[in-house]
Lab assay of single mutants.
Amino acid sequence: VDYIVEYDYDAQHDDELTIRKGDIIKNVKKLEEEGWLEGELNGKRGMFPDNFVKEIK
């Protein structure tokens, strides 16, 4: 499942992704941690907030 970024987010920890509006995040999975998703961007896998992105259908 792929998501498109709607709002910029700067990573706060090493396991998070810095994302920018218009980025496409690939292979996204829901995490047990409420409010977070995990996906791949530019060869890096990491977490990001689910309210900054929208699923591409």
Rank of each mutant, 00 (worst) to 15 (best):
V1F: 09
V1N: 12
V1E: 06
V1L: 09
D2K: 15
D2H: 13
D2E: 14
D2T: 15
D2G: 09
D2V: 14
Y3L: 04
Y3S: 03
Y3V: 08
Y3R: 04
Y3P: 00
Y3Q: 02
Y3H: 03
Y3W: 11
I4K: 07
I4S: 11
I4W: 12
I4R: 13
I4E: 07
V5E: 00
V5G: 12
V5A: 07
E6N: 06
E6G: 04
E6R: 15
E6F: 11
E6V: 15
E6A: 08
E6K: 12
E6L: 15
Y7A: 14
Y7I: 09
Y7T: 12
Y7W: 09
Y7F: 07
Y7V: 09
Y7Q: 13
D8V: 03
D8W: 04
D8E: 06
D8H: 08
D8Q: 07
D8F: 04
Y9V: 01
Y9M: 03
Y9L: 04
Y9K: 05
Y9W: 10
Y9Q: 02
Y9A: 02
D10Q: 11
D10A: 14
D10Y: 14
D10G: 05
D10P: 07
D10W: 11
A11Y: 02
A11D: 01
A11I: 01
A11R: 11
A11M: 12
A11L: 04
A11K: 10
A11G: 10
Q12I: 12
Q12N: 08
Q12Y: 06
Q12M: 11
Q12P: 03
Q12T: 08
H13K: 13
H13T: 09
H13V: 13
H13N: 10
H13Y: 12
H13D: 10
D14G: 13
D14R: 14
D14E: 13
D14M: 12
D14H: 14
D14P: 14
D14Y: 15
D14V: 13
D14K: 13
D15F: 13
D15L: 12
D15Q: 13
D15V: 10
D15M: 13
D15Y: 13
D15T: 13
E16N: 03
E16Y: 09
E16W: 05
E16R: 03
E16M: 06
E16G: 07
E16P: 00
E16L: 02
L17S: 01
L17R: 01
L17K: 00
L17Y: 01
L17V: 03
L17N: 00
T18Y: 03
T18R: 08
T18F: 05
T18N: 09
T18Q: 08
T18L: 03
T18S: 08
I19A: 06
I19G: 03
I19S: 01
I19Y: 02
I19F: 15
I19N: 00
R20Y: 04
R20Q: 07
R20H: 09
R20W: 02
R20L: 04
R20F: 04
K21Y: 06
K21L: 06
K21S: 07
K21N: 05
K21A: 09
K21Q: 10
G22T: 04
G22H: 11
G22A: 05
G22M: 06
G22P: 01
G22Q: 04
G22F: 07
G22E: 03
D23E: 14
D23N: 10
D23R: 03
D23K: 03
D23M: 15
D23S: 10
I24V: 07
I24R: 10
I24A: 02
I24E: 03
I25N: 00
I25M: 03
I25E: 00
I25R: 00
I25Y: 00
I25P: 02
I25K: 00
K26Y: 15
K26E: 06
K26F: 15
N27E: 08
N27S: 12
N27R: 12
N27G: 08
N27L: 14
N27I: 04
N27H: 13
V28R: 01
V28W: 05
V28Y: 02
V28E: 00
V28A: 13
V28K: 01
K29A: 11
K29D: 09
K29V: 12
K29S: 13
K29I: 12
K29R: 12
K29P: 01
K30L: 12
K30H: 07
K30W: 06
K30M: 09
L31E: 07
L31K: 10
L31I: 12
L31N: 10
L31G: 10
L31D: 05
E32H: 10
E32A: 10
E32V: 14
E32Y: 08
E33Y: 14
E34Y: 09
E34G: 09
E34S: 09
E34K: 12
E34Q: 12
E34W: 06
E34R: 14
G35L: 04
G35F: 05
G35I: 03
G35D: 05
G35Q: 04
G35P: 05
W36P: 01
W36H: 03
W36T: 03
W36I: 05
W36L: 04
W36Q: 03
L37F: 10
L37Q: 04
L37W: 06
L37G: 04
L37V: 07
L37R: 04
L37H: 04
L37I: 05
L37P: 02
E38N: 10
E38T: 08
E38W: 07
E38F: 07
G39R: 00
G39N: 00
G39P: 00
G39Q: 00
E40M: 09
E40D: 11
E40S: 10
E40I: 08
E40F: 11
E40W: 13
E40G: 05
L41K: 04
L41Q: 03
L41R: 04
L41A: 06
L41D: 01
L41E: 01
L41S: 06
N42K: 13
N42P: 02
N42L: 10
N42T: 07
N42F: 15
N42A: 12
N42M: 13
G43W: 09
G43N: 10
G43S: 09
G43M: 12
G43V: 02
K44L: 11
K44G: 06
K44F: 12
K44Y: 09
R45D: 01
R45G: 02
R45V: 09
R45L: 06
R45K: 06
R45T: 08
G46P: 00
G46W: 01
G46F: 02
G46K: 03
M47S: 08
M47V: 08
M47H: 06
M47F: 08
M47A: 07
M47R: 10
M47E: 03
F48Y: 02
F48G: 01
P49K: 14
P49M: 14
P49S: 14
P49Q: 13
P49H: 15
P49W: 09
P49R: 15
P49N: 15
D50A: 15
D50P: 09
D50L: 15
N51L: 06
N51E: 13
N51I: 08
N51Y: 10
F52D: 03
F52K: 05
F52L: 08
F52Q: 02
F52V: 06
F52Y: 09
V53M: 03
V53D: 02
V53H: 03
V53I: 04
V53S: 05
V53T: 06
V53A: 15
K54S: 14
K54T: 14
E55P: 15
E55M: 07
E55W: 01
E55V: 13
E55T: 05
E55K: 06
E55S: 03
E55D: 03
E55G: 04
I56P: 03
I56E: 04
I56H: 07
I56S: 04
I56F: 03
I56A: 05
I56L: 08
K57A: 15
K57E: 15
K57V: 15
K57N: 15
K57P: 15
K57Y: 11
K57I: 15
K57M: 15
K57W: 15
K57R: 07
K57T: 15
